[in-house]
Simulated scan of single mutants.
Amino acid sequence: MLKYLITERKLIVTLAKNDFRKKFAGSYMGILWALVQPVVTVLMYWFVFQVGLRQTQSYGGVPFILWMLAGLVPWFYFNDALTGGTNSLVEYSYLVKKVVFRIEILPIVKACSALYVHVFFVVLTYVLYCLYGKFPGWYSFQMLYYSGCMFILVLSLSYGTAAISVLFRDNVQIVAIALQVGVWFTPIMWNFADIAPHLPKVVCWIFKLNPMYYICYGYRDSLIGHVPFWHHPALTAWFWIFTILAYLWGTKTFRRSRGHFADVL
């Protein structure tokens, strides 16, 4: 993965830009649609929880909307990048059939393409925190670390899901359903600390086994709690163990299946 990121960096950047642009080619608003949908989603969650359900409790000294946004922004990227990566080989089937093209970079292209919207929302998050008088400190730079963690995680999974999707097209829908469930399984709109005392320890550990638990709370630690990532050695170790295993599974599945891609597509 690192080899391709370095040797094919110019091609990856070019393809990522084109991939981002072509999603909205022909529409009047163009790439603005990439920003409108997540913004509407955030406003909808804000209206449901803070206005409809009157969720006015603050967490870590910040309003609920800021607390929720810190967990929602990384999930937007994970959802977008994994969905795109899963469908990358099918979408770029004309490149997969070319003998001279390195198809290994296609999941990387999708992960990089999703970064454009992610960067926008990170900046928007900073602006909203400042407007509320909650100015992020030096710990907010930890978001670079957690973003890097998420980038590697989503790539590791995408290699396997992309390979399976070529041979089993229903996998795209299975991943989409898993992500719909995952957004509620991950403590984004609800606080894990509120329900943990009422749950068996085994159930609590199951929630923490979700790698996005580590990422979402990492963003909150960076923006709200000001907690360094090395203060969670057990969660950090588990995240990297999971990511390494996902990478080994994904790349092995990709290599073993690639000989059939051109024939199936």
Rank of each mutant, 00 (worst) to 15 (best):
L155R: 01
F120D: 09
P136H: 10
V154E: 08
I103D: 06
M150Y: 03
V122I: 15
Y92Q: 12
F141E: 05
F76I: 07
G137V: 11
H118F: 14
Y77S: 07
C149T: 06
Y94F: 12
Y145G: 07
I108A: 04
S140Q: 12
K97Y: 03
A81R: 00
G71R: 09
Y77W: 12
E104A: 09
Y126D: 10
P107W: 00
K97W: 07
C149G: 13
Y126A: 13
K98S: 03
V99C: 07
A114M: 04
L82D: 04
G85P: 00
T86P: 01
L153N: 04
G84S: 10
I108L: 13
Y132C: 03
M143H: 04
V154G: 00
V100L: 13
Y146K: 11
Y132E: 12
G148A: 00
V96S: 08
G84M: 00
V100I: 12
F78S: 13
I103G: 08
G84Y: 03
L89Y: 07
L69M: 14
D80H: 08
C112F: 14
F78T: 10
I105A: 02
S147L: 15
L69T: 01
I152K: 02
F121Q: 13
V123M: 10
F120V: 06
K134W: 09
A70W: 00
F141Q: 07
Y116K: 13
F76K: 01
L131V: 14
A70K: 01
V122G: 07
V90K: 14
I108P: 11
T86L: 03
M68C: 14
G84D: 15
F120Y: 09
F121Y: 13
I108V: 09
W138K: 07
V117W: 04
Y94L: 04
I103Y: 00
V73Q: 05
L155M: 08
T86G: 01
G148S: 03
L69G: 05
L124W: 08
S140N: 11
M68V: 01
V99L: 07
V73F: 01
K110M: 10
I105C: 09
G85L: 13
F101N: 14
L95D: 09
F135D: 04
A70E: 02
Y145Q: 06
S113F: 04
S140A: 15
F120E: 11
F151T: 05
T86A: 05
I105L: 12
G133R: 01
G85H: 12
V123C: 09
L128R: 03
E91T: 05
K98R: 11
P107K: 04
L69I: 08
A81P: 00
D80G: 02
G137Q: 10
V119C: 10
V100P: 02
S88A: 14
K97C: 09
C130A: 10
V123I: 15
L89K: 06
Y146L: 08
T125S: 06
S93I: 14
I108Y: 01
K134F: 13
W138C: 05
Y129K: 01
V127M: 12
I105P: 02
P74W: 01
S88H: 03
